[in-house]
């Protein structure tokens, strides 16, 4: 029983990590928490669904959904965030403008998705079985699709980790987020690099949406709770740490799985709120967050 719960927890934790990673990538590039992330992910998942319905092949739809997610992320930055950053930067609204604007974008995308596909629950089918692995007479809740979720998430996280650590692009991404002016002086095209950060974030969210949706159903709001979990995970890990996002996601996933198993499903988010509060009060920049220098 303990192992079963742990495996399920790792599977959902992997998805939380992906969502948290998407939020961290945007936060690092633009200092904005992208509340529209679940909207972008749901739109790319709907497009993946549409492709899988017409081609009858999940494995074609998955990479295309990821590509759509990346393009969407890039477009949100180009068409929307740059305009916002240039305009709403004074007055009482300045501090909350990014939150409000991305919430507005979330609403816009979700209503748009609802207008096109309706609000009914759709099934984005994967060829992998959703039934748990069996060992003799014992069937565990962990299914091949869960295994695929863990593997896919691990691959994506490893790819992003490698890009950040070993490539020039990764160096430019890190430089642009911590010292944008110096990076610019050193010849990094900061705004282009930031845009790549948004595209990466969009693709990470798209992977999360496309691999988790076959285990449940697809609707305009189906990824909202995933976003909240991803956000809690990202904040626990410290909003600007990639490693923190992954660890935060896994800890939260396993924690939620045990709460679900031993206490009951309805209180999970209340416990999530309490964990979030406790972490933030002890360490206001998260566990793996970088300390900021004192102002003034």
């Amino acid at each position: 029983m303990f192992i079963d719960t742990l495996l399920i927890g790792i599977s959902s934790g992997a998805i939380y990590s992906l969502m948290a990673l998407a939020l961290v990538l945007v936060w690092r590039s633009t200092r904005v928490v992208n509340f529209a992330q679940s909207g972008q992910a749901v739109l790319s998942t709907y497009i993946g669904y549409e492709i899988s319905v017409s081609t009858h092949n999940y494995w074609i739809s998955l990479p295309l959904a990821i590509l759509v997610g990346a393009i969407l992320g890039s477009l949100v930055d180009l068409l929307f965030m740059r305009l916002l950053m240039g305009r709403a930067n004074s007055g009482p609204i300045a501090e909350i403008a990014p939150v409000i604007a991305t919430l507005g974008l979330l609403g816009l995308i979700q209503s748009f998705v609802g207008l096109i596909w309706g609000n009914a629950f759709l099934h984005y089918a994967s060829p992998l079985s959703g039934k748990g692995f069996s060992f003799g007479t014992h069937t565990i809740p962990f299914s091949p699709q869960n295994l695929f979720i863990v593997v896919a998430s691990a691959v994506v996280l490893a790819i992003f980790g490698a890009i950040f650590k070993y490539t020039d692009l990764g160096l430019a991404l890190r430089a642009s987020s911590f010292q944008p002016e110096i990076a610019q002086l050193a010849g990094v095209r900061v705004s282009r690099v930031r845009n790549i950060g948004w595209a990466f974030a969009g693709s990470a969210g798209a992977v999360a949406g496309a691999v988790i949706t076959p285990t449940s159903t697809l609707s305009p709001n189906s990824l909202d709770l995933l976003f909240v979990s991803g956000f809690i995970a990202a904040v626990i890990g410290g909003l600007d740490s990639l490693v923190g996002a992954v660890i935060g996601g896994l800890v939260l996933g396993v924690g939620f799985a045990f709460i679900l198993q031993y206490i009951g499903g309805s209180v999970t988010f209340l416990v999530g709120f309490i964990i979030l509060m406790a972490v933030l009060l002890a360490r206001p920049r998260g566990i793996f967050g970088h300390k900021v220098n004192r102002r003034a």
Partner: peptide
């Protein structure tokens, strides 16, 4: 900022 936004968001979902 975003920390407060997210914490209150989690409250709205959890409470």
């Amino acid at each position: 900022g975003p920390y407060l936004a997210g914490t209150t968001l989690a409250l709205a979902v959890g409470l």
